[in-house]
Design a protein around this nucleic acid. Structure first.
Lengths: 260, 260
DNA sequence: AGCTAATTGTGTATTGCCTACACGATTGGT
DNA sequence: ACCAATCGTGTAGGCAATACACAATTAGCT
């Protein structure tokens, strides 16, 4: 249906099939040899490779070889690499921790949720490198969503504001995690220490950030905000926590006053 | 220096070269034929393709053909595709609107900044699909940074909190824009209207979201939060505005009370 | 003016990737 | 026992990034 430059493109995947793949469907008995592989095996192997060597190391050949089969055999289970990745994304999200008791405040429950999401992205950094294809529809994705919505409901947010808030929070976490991971891997690949990286970045800023062109940034640079801190980690999680606290404060006052 | 599975990988790019490419450096007179192309031409062409057909349509061949040159000729100007994309990212960020007068409040200045970032991402959706490689170091990226920091300084935030806040906000904007764009393009590719997409998503949720597994989500679904609204646009920008307001409120109270 | 050496655009070739297609082997249902 | 669907595989096509060598070009020095 979709034509690009006169050439045929693969049809957009049948949404029904996509969901079957994501949620796993019971296949009725059919003739033919029994499958020796499973989608789960393939996905697990692919995730293993991605965890260890990054998403760019995941190719159909590589996954198949790792499993001891031919490249094409995978296509009996997965219609395309794109859809394999889609399933990988959901599976990598594991399951969020169980709801837990209602004893803790909604604030700390949400803080834990954020920490959980953050930790998950650090466990599977490649997840952040995969371009988003649409609204989340896998079971684990939805589970995380659900887990995040719960404390917000307890906080007293209205139905219409729930999605906005959770998407906003999730977005901030994802982007900060992505930045953190990318800086970390860039550092590792260059074989440089944290202090050196920061020093290098600081030097860049010193060189190019003139006070006329970037007044505020220049002030910060000379104030030493980007100077090497000596901390072992880059501490973007601290930045995240700060932002989350502001949001939580904002929600609290919003619920109390009811003002937009 | 970096070996993967016994094979050589390309050396991490010399940071000096990367910056020269990003900031543009004056080349001293050298022997040899005069270059007929410029980096700017190449980048502009590549951005044009990306704007029109998405980042996946940008290949060295494609860019070269568009310019009327051979594929390999581009490598005289750009060391690798990766670095070409890096420059594209910065150039696509254009320049943020000038600081403007100090008459408006820091809140509305920051709101405008958010709107500006949002609009930029909708103009160049492919920017969000490119995996981040490190901390921003291009001139336009830094300019946006600077523009966002200014109102925060006026708000009274401490130096150490400035970066955290702007990164947090930027992250949320980026991720929401990415989601918005991806839903929009997915819809276009499928040739479906907005209402149909939403109806489809609603149906998915109806089918798979059981109250036992996703209690909160199920409640929202049956409350009709995901039901087709009939709005022409998906309205994620409204969700964004809500989140931004909460953050601004949070910042305000933080500055006033000084509590963490 | 002539020589040298660097630089440009190009052609060729390598490697790796995704995936369409056809073929023989396998197996459930009738 | 047969039929037809399904499995794993081999082959092959198309595209992408990029290393390398070669001829043409040109600035600066003699």
């Amino acid at each position: 249906m979709v034509v690009k430059h006169g050439e045929w493109r693969t049809m957009p995947a049948d949404p029904r099939k996509r969901l079957e793949l994501l949620w796993g469907s019971s296949t009725p008995k059919r003739p033919g040899p029994r499958p020796k592989l499973t989608v789960d095996q393939i996905v697990a192997t692919a995730i293993g490779i991605a965890d260890a060597e990054g998403i760019e190391a995941v190719s159909m050949q590589r996954v198949a070889t790792e499993l001891g089969y031919t490249t094409m055999s995978l296509y009996r289970y997965v219609p395309s690499k794109e859809q394999l990745v889609e399933v990988m994304l959901d599976r990598a999200g594991e399951a969020p921790p169980p709801p837990g008791d209602d004893e803790q405040s909604w604030r700390s429950e949400l803080e834990n949720w954020v920490d959980g999401v953050w930790a998950m992205y650090l466990r599977h950094p490649w997840v952040l490198q995969v371009p988003i294809t649409g609204a989340p529809s896998g079971p684990n994705q939805l589970a995380w969503f659900d887990a995040g919505l719960r404390p917000l409901v307890r906080a007293g947010l209205r139905d219409g504001d729930l999605m906005a808030t959770i998407l906003f929070l999730l977005g901030a976490v994802q982007q900060l995690a992505q930045l953190s991971v990318s800086m970390s891997t860039a550092r590792t690949e260059a074989g440089v220490t944290m202090a050196e990286t920061q020093a290098g970045y600081n030097a860049i800023l010193q060189e190019f950030v003139s006070a006329e062109r970037f007044p505020t940034l220049a002030k910060l640079t000379s104030a030493g905000v980007f100077a090497p801190t000596g901390l072992p980690d880059e501490g973007l999680d601290i930045d995240l926590k700060f932002g989350v606290q502001r949001v939580l404060d904002g929600i609290e006052s919003y619920v109390q006053t009811g003002t937009s």
